[in-house]
């Protein structure tokens, strides 16, 4: 990638625990327009996966963009992706750049 291109990473989180175990802040019409990971709880699926990091911005969940979604809408989308029995994982497209 070029030096000025923002980099994004696709992280597949297997549903290895009963909770996803992340806390997010942000969403449309707030200071943080895309959801940012603020906590990763030990023992949750995200922690077990080991690839999500505090501070990363979530761009997409299972290929669905979070751009323009308000906080509660983004949180609901992530919660439903984790709860859904369609897949035994959740795909996150994340970036380290804010």
């Amino acid at each position: 990638p070029g030096l000025l291109e923002p980099t994004s990473t696709l992280v597949r989180v297997p549903k290895s625990a009963s909770t996803l175990g992340i806390a997010i802040e942000g969403g449309a019409n707030t200071r943080q327009p895309l959801p940012r990971i603020v906590t990763i709880q030990r023992g949750g699926s995200a922690h077990n996966c080991g690839q999500l990091k505090v501070g990363q911005i979530i761009l997409e969940v299972n290929g669905v963009s979070l751009r323009g979604r308000e906080h509660r809408d983004a949180a609901r989308l992530i919660a439903e992706a984790f709860k859904s029995k369609e897949r035994d994982y959740v795909d996150f497209l994340v970036t380290d750049f804010n």
Partner: peptide, 15 residues
């Protein structure tokens, strides 16, 4: 007159 210069902070949700 007060003017909002920045967007409000977000709530935090545990998932």
């Amino acid at each position: 007159r007060e003017k909002r210069l920045t967007l409000p902070p977000s709530e935090i949700t545990l998932l």
